[in-house]
Structure formats: C-alpha cells, structure tokens
Write a protein that binds this DNA or RNA. Structure first.
Lengths: 215, 215
DNA sequence: GTCTATATTGCGATAGAC
DNA sequence: GTCTATCGCAATATAGAC
C-alpha cells in the first residue's frame, strides 16, 4: 500500500543503506514539521509520508526531538557549507565580505531555511535545545565565521574596530534585514537576483565605508 | 459562586461598560496567546483567566481569530506608539541616528514586542492581515521614518548613498541583530543597558563611517 | 468506529447604566 | 423602570486522537 517508489538504497554508491534511509526520512519529515509545527506533528504523520516503521525513526534519531534536531543540523550543514572560511581565503576584504553577504543571503532566503526560521521562532521558547541548535548552526555560526575573518583583516590593519564579534553580528543583521522579515511574514515573495545582488553590494559598501562622504 | 472580583464598571468614567470589558478580555487573553500560541490556546483557557461568559467574547470579537487579531492590533498600537514621536528634529546626523537606534532597540527588546514578534512570525503565513499590520506599524514604520530622515541629510550633502530606502532597511537590520534573535529564541535574557548603549553606538559608527580606516 | 477536545451558538436570567 | 450587556449553562458541530 505504501508508495511504490523503490529508492531503497544501493543507488548512491558512497552511501550506506542506513545513510540513505536517514536522508529519506529527513527529507520527508521536514515539510511535515514546517506545515504543522513541532508540537503539531506526530511521528505517525511522518510515517504516513515516508513509509516504513516507527522503529526505524526511533533507532536512528532517538526521539521526535532528535529527528527535528537532525533536520535542523542537516539543513544548516548543507546551507552553510559555502560560508566556510576556506572558501574565502586569499581574497581581499571587499571580495570576501561581498561573497559572504551573497552566500548568507542565499542561504537565509531559501524556502527551507525560511520555514525553519518560522518554526524555531515559534517553538524556540518551549524547546530551548532546538533553539540553541538552530542558532548555533545557523546565524551564530555565520557570525562566528565572519568574526574570525574580521579579526584576520584587523590584524593586517585593513580595518579598524573595537568589537569584531559585535560588528559581525551587526553585519549579519544587515543581511537579515527588513526584506528577510517581510518574506518570513509572507508579505513578499523572494526578491529577484538583481535586487539581492544590489543589496549585498550596498551592505558591504556601508559596512566598509559608511554613508558619510569622505573628503 | 463566581469570582468575587467586582471590577464591574463605572470605574473608568470615559469608557462604556462594553469598552471596559473588551479591554479586560484583551489584557487577560494576551499572555495566554503569548505563552501557548494561537492553536494552543482555547477560549476556555481565556475564560478561566478573565471569568465571565464565552458568549461575551463571541459577541465582541466574533471568533477566536477576531480576538487574536484584536490582541495583536491592540498591543502593537500601544507598544509601537513610541516610534512615533519626532524626538529627532533639529539634531545633527550622529545624534539623530543614535537616538533612533536607542529607541528602536528599546521598543523591539521589550517583552511585549518580543512576544508579538514570536507570535506573528509563527502565525503570519496563516494571518496575512495581521502580519502586514505588525510589519507596517513596527519594522516597516521604523524603516520608513529613518528613510525620510536619511533623505533630508542626503539633500544637505551630509551623507552619500544611492538607495536611502535600502540603507534604512539595513540600518534597522543592524539594530535587529543576532542579539535580538537570541532573545527571541529565549537563548539570552535582555542585554544590559550598557551593552545596549554600546551596541547602538557601534551601529551608528559603522553606518556612518564604516570599518575601513580613513587615512 | 468511538471518544475527546474545542470552536461556536442559543437562550433565559441577571445586573448595571440611564 | 427600561434597556442592554453580560452571564451561566447547555447544546451543536466537528476535527482529531485512540
């Protein structure tokens, strides 16, 4: 009766059957959580989507919370991979920040991450571990990486500031601006690529040089 | 048998019995929605808090949604009224921005606005009118006001930028930074007054002059 | 399929405003 | 005293849980 899709395994040579199954479950469960919220989703809802046995879910993820945590970390890992410091090595300040702004924007405006954001903001107070996991593997990690980058440029004398951690937080905030909020609230569809590029450039420009004219 | 509280009416001379009752209900119901979310709150929960009859709620607000909407609009109106005053006239650029940063920070870090933020982000997709109302009377209004201010300074030549609206959004984003998010997620209690002041100053400094050393 | 929870409504009784 | 808002309680409807 279940879905007839036989994607069972042995198709991706690099992955064990367990890994494949794990990914199938995560991929199928995520939209269910997104639609009904954490509390509003039952393991049975997920079984109804992905098929198989509850037993598999519990042995792989331990609990409903464990499954959700896996969804968060999995998405964060995929999404933020491009923000790795290595990806920015050997570039100058402007190019590094611009690339960071683009990547962060791309990540946080993706439908999946937007849905995660809504979900975690909604349930964060009730499930502090989930909130912490989301923050640490998403916005917090982004900020920490940027801070590290800023410190390197600081040592070289390319920039001057008192509080690199604070500045990193504020740059991340610039990227997560009112357009992000409007999109989160469903008031706006995703901005165009040109608009996004334009705003990334503006953010970098402001962060580096400010709006006060130099003379 | 009923609760002995006789707050009946005739205490606020300017308000009709109906108005008084309406406000009592909103005041009592708001924390319930804030704590349990829209779906997690039942009319009976609210009656248990405020007393009286369900019928009153339905004749006044029409439905649970109507009550929810009234709570959001009422709280938004009260909490965000502080963004209205023009304490910014006739000052120079630095002082104006600093005052704006302080004020916006104070508003958006208040417990009520934080609770509203969580609630509206959670339910925004389901209640687009509420999302729009919250945005327009909060972050959107702040951004619009700032944009107007920026345009004035732009005309005077005090600043140089291409896109005042975009820059305003980004400044608002700097104020709603990762500390705001951590607080929304319950990962952090409200930052101290000194920390807040420090960060407001940093944001203004970065926005005006950037982090690149002037030479 | 039964059972529970909960949104919504109906209506007679009561209490406060004028 | 009349009028209206509110109360109290019960009934209906329905969706989801078990």
């Amino acid at each position: 009766m279940a879905a007839g899709k036989k994607t069972t395994a042995t198709e991706k040579p690099g992955k064990s059957r367990q890994e494949t199954r794990r990914e199938e479950i995560i991929k199928a469960a995520a939209p269910v959580f997104f639609e009904h919220g954490f509390a509003g989703t039952s393991i049975d809802d997920i079984i109804a989507k992905v098929g198989g046995s509850k037993r598999t879910i519990y042995s792989e993820f331990g609990s409903k919370e464990g499954l959700f945590a896996a969804i968060v970390t999995d998405n964060a890992r995929h999404a933020l991979a491009a923000l790795a410091p290595e990806a920015m090595a050997g570039r100058n300040l402007d190019a590094t920040l611009l690339e960071f702004a683009r990547e962060l924007n791309r990540v946080q405006m993706s439908p999946t991450v937007l849905a995660l954001y809504r979900l975690v903001v909604a349930e964060g107070v009730r499930f502090p571990e989930l909130a912490k996991l989301f923050y640490d593997s998403g916005p917090g990690l982004a900020s920490a990486r940027l801070s590290q980058v800023l410190k390197e440029f600081l040592e070289r004398g390319d920039i001057a500031l008192d509080d690199p951690d604070g500045a990193a937080d504020e740059f991340v905030g610039m990227i997560r601006d009112n357009r992000h909020l409007k999109t989160v609230l469903g008031l706006m569809s995703r901005p165009s690529a040109e608009d996004t590029e334009q705003r990334a450039q503006t953010a970098v420009r402001i962060f580096l040089d400010g709006v006060r004219p130099r003379r």
